[in-house]
Design a protein around this nucleic acid. Sequence first.
DNA 1: AGTGACGATGTGACCGTGCACATACAAGGA
DNA 2: TCCTTGTATGTGCACGGTCACATCGTCACT
Lengths: 337, 337
Amino acid sequence: MSTASERARMPSIRDVARLAGVSHQTVSRVLNDHASIRPETKAKVLDAIAVLDYRPNLAARALVTSKSNMLGILAATVGEFGPTSSIVGIEDAAREEGYSVSTLNLSATTPEAIGNALRQLAREQVDGIVVLAPQVRAFHVLKGMAVEMPFVSLQTASGSDGVTLSADQVAGARTATEHLIGLGHSDIIHIAGPQDWIEAESRMRGYLDALREADLPTFPPIRGDWTADFGYFAGQELSRRRDFTAVFVANDQMAIGLMHGFRDAGVRVPEDVSVVGFDDIPVAAHVAPTLSTVHQDFPELGRRAVRILLAQIRGEQVPEFGPLQTTLRTRESSAPR
Amino acid sequence: MSTASERARMPSIRDVARLAGVSHQTVSRVLNDHASIRPETKAKVLDAIAVLDYRPNLAARALVTSKSNMLGILAATVGEFGPTSSIVGIEDAAREEGYSVSTLNLSATTPEAIGNALRQLAREQVDGIVVLAPQVRAFHVLKGMAVEMPFVSLQTASGSDGVTLSADQVAGARTATEHLIGLGHSDIIHIAGPQDWIEAESRMRGYLDALREADLPTFPPIRGDWTADFGYFAGQELSRRRDFTAVFVANDQMAIGLMHGFRDAGVRVPEDVSVVGFDDIPVAAHVAPTLSTVHQDFPELGRRAVRILLAQIRGEQVPEFGPLQTTLRTRESSAPR
DNA sequence: AGTGACGATGTGACCGTGCACATACAAGGA
DNA sequence: TCCTTGTATGTGCACGGTCACATCGTCACT
């Protein structure tokens, strides 16, 4: 056990100044590489810094500048594959730019919970917030909240007022559905995500658009909860129906569960029914049958979010990203009718 | 766009003091609920706080106390299911205790990278660090580094000097292997994780222990990289061999890939070969065939880590947790010989 | 030669807390 | 009555940076 009480004070900017024979302000200038510093002076200071193993105190800096060099992540996801992958992208991009990252997981999406979370991050003096709250309700709460801080919202409704960012879910879902149509299927049903989720709505819209355009009948979508367990349940239920030959499922987890349900009920994939998922989780390429799905680059989404956020913070021109492209990955689970 | 320049100064402790008609120190005492405060005075102060919507400046507090009420997470995992789940547990538990969480993802586990990461977190004044660096090398780097800060290491070697914490990997692997032995298998091979990973070693040891105890032949383990893609590759290679009837795989991702490789090569699971995985990822119960595997409670692991860390920070008695139990989940992929 | 602009550096105040110490008053014991 | 003890509160400084402003020398231009 180290004696914390006798721990020597960390060297401060003034200690460095003394050793280098300059004023503390000069040291500060070197640290923030200010223009007017003689190279010779700079060298002396850097030397002293190295000798003392000095490192600036971020709290002190945050206090005086009211900036923390910290970004907040507000996540309201139960551990979905997509958002989690995006978070990794956010963290990496932020660290690269010299920002640290404080993450806050939300279990409920009530206005109070979201409000508290935002307040908490504000107290931590984060300079900006990336919101991963893919629920419609959360989106509206945020919209009505007028967050007094730069913030970016991931995977939310496109075309909205605030700065948002997402892969083109509608187009991806449309491509997936068109793929099934191209295989000769005309009776295609959809297992959607929870009603409250924006992505669920977008994917459903893409599905409906594709069917409408091809003049095919649409079916009332089945509402799931993203879990494989629900997919299994749906598979067992659907096995009683014989009015469809293909299913477009709003995410891979449910799709994998669905195939399991079908299997247990004696429905063969893809011989009897074709299945297409969404997200391209790592095991999608290996389940039996391998799952056709829509791939999207979640980490890239996170990286873009950081770039937009930092531009906002620094008052620079905010880069315009087109919607991120999705890619259809055709595998065994979808076959000609 | 809000005019940030004209943004009013946030109310400080002195503003509250003025409004309440007390000194700033009295306000400070109320905030830290100090003992000697008249209830009447306290009420006045709380009132003023509410009126001004005052919220303490954490940076100022951190500056003067040298404590940040922030925990750091140092993660050196490429997005594995387990560690990611643990992180969620850590964050929740920390927030519950009033701590915020700063996460730092590491791509490399070189001593320099780890050192830099620790230094970075130290600069951020985190009060303690949870390390998720399941690699043997990282473990040794940390050990030799004498981190001058409370820290806890997750899923590392048990029985080591520092405070570490993990589910009982050896026992879990042993149970899984014994399960296969119990089904009548006597030629059981093992697909292990990367050589550098502690969990990979533990699971391998459990496998070897079980076989040795049952006086069965052991095979040199095959070294994988945790990915489903590797599992697929291994499945194709192994299909040429006929000297085994069961495989214990160090994680589910590889196990699922393995079954895919077998399938493509005409090897049937479980008729020809039984397979058991490790981790119980959400889709394990739904792939075809459903995967027998070893379940462990990752979030609980994270929660325990936080409890230990906070005890250390506060100088309280550090709670002793036994190794976390694992549970065997028997499913279709393992069958009697 | 006088003057202004600019480059390089120093001086002191300030950010918003908590801590050590001082103070004022009331209660209790010698 | 005086002194001790304890409770409730106030005073000033320190934490480690940055910012605004002052200072001083050099150089170019009139």
